[in-house]
């Protein structure tokens, strides 16, 4: 019997689960993005393996409307200093150039840490299934090709998936009434007041991009450590920025771990948050030479549909924010 037991024990260990094979480290991916504030201020990237990029030329639009269900924000073109005055008057025909005086308080879209506060602001009562517009008339002003533009704009009403608004040049009695249907496939609908039409090729479909590198106009005093390019308004700068596809992406900014150390297992328990945008995250100025530099200590970890990525800027070539190229390092976790 002893022999039988020995034989049983010897044979028992012959077949086992195969151990996991060692896999070499996967190299991170490097992509180069060129941004030019006057010609191609916009590049969308889709994280993946490999990462895809899509560069867009500058286009002429002033307002964009949120398409996400239950979101009703209206924002201005972030690459142009567009200021807005809420007249708090409902009579569209009574608003003209004389409505602007020394007491007029102009507002710009206000950049917060993870969000943008729209200059148009809360334009109605959103406690109803169909928002009820306050019907305030807004005056918009911007400069383009050395020409000043003044427009007035009034949200008439909205239903579950439609914006309905009235607009026209401030000094003219003629006006246009336009309807914009929320397009679920894109985050925003873009509209050009000057061209009287929707701009439809500004943004790829939401499932085709994760990050949108571009510019954002904001107060120079607010971001003293971030390089910027000057604008027609001396108190406003054009900052390098990016937008996030907040329907699909959540982020965590890691400034402690090295890029190399960041991996899936230590990232998946981080507290990720939804964010719409960020200004100057990967940029800094050399304190001595004032040259544009990458801030490679900022590691942005992104989570999209249970896939994790970390991205950092490796180097920046170009002397000005208005025309430069950045090499990003992207690692799928």
């Amino acid at each position: 019997m002893k022999k039988a037991v020995y034989i049983f024990l010897v044979f028992s260990i012959t077949s086992c689960f195969t151990p996991d094979e060692y896999l070499p480290k996967i190299d991170s991916e490097k992509i180069n993005i060129s941004l030019n504030s006057t010609e191609s201020p916009s590049t969308f990237i889709k994280l993946g393996f490999p990462t895809g990029t899509l560069s867009k030329e500058k286009s002429n639009w002033q307002l964009r409307f949120e398409n996400t269900a239950d979101e009703w924000g209206i924002y201005t073109n972030p690459t142009e200093p567009i200021r807005i005055f809420n007249t708090k008057i409902n009579r569209y025909d009574l608003i003209n150039l004389s409505s602007i005086d020394g007491n007029t308080i102009w507002e710009y879209d206000d950049v917060k840490s993870t969000n943008i506060k729209s200059a148009i602001g809360r334009w109605g009562d959103f406690d109803f299934p169909n928002p009820e517009s306050y019907k305030d008339v807004y005056i918009l002003n911007w400069t383009q090709d050395s020409q000043d533009y003044y427009y007035k704009f009034q949200i008439l009403d909205a239903d579950i998936n439609t914006y309905h608004f009235k607009y026209g040049p401030l000094n003219e009695t003629s006006f246009q009434i336009e309807t914009i249907n929320k397009q679920e496939v894109q985050l925003y609908s873009y509209f050009s007041l000057v061209n009287n039409e929707q701009a439809k090729t500004i943004e790829p479909n939401t499932n085709e991009w994760h990050i949108h590198f571009s510019y954002q106009v904001d107060s120079i005093n607010k971001h003293t450590k971030i390089p910027y390019s000057s604008t027609s308004n001396s108190s406003l700068g054009l900052f390098p920025s990016f937008e996030l596809n907040h329907e699909h992406v959540e982020i965590f900014l890691d400034t402690v771990m090295n890029f190399e150390q960041i991996n899936y297992i230590n990232s998946r328990n981080l507290t990720f948050e939804k964010s719409k945008n960020s200004i100057g995250l990967f940029y800094q100025k050399d304190p001595i030479t004032s040259q544009l530099q990458s801030n490679s200590k900022q590691n942005l970890i992104l989570r999209s549909d249970d896939e994790y990525y970390v991205i950092r800027a490796l180097n920046i070539i170009g002397s000005s924010v208005g025309n430069h190229s950045v090499t990003f390092e992207i690692k799928k976790l």
């Binding site: 996991d20 996967i26 899936y264 297992i265």
Partner: peptide, 13 residues
């Protein structure tokens, strides 16, 4: 979840 390069493994969330 296993990382076959570092040998790290953990219960998936």
């Amino acid at each position: 979840d296993k990382n076959l390069n570092s040998g790290q493994q953990n219960l998936s969330t």
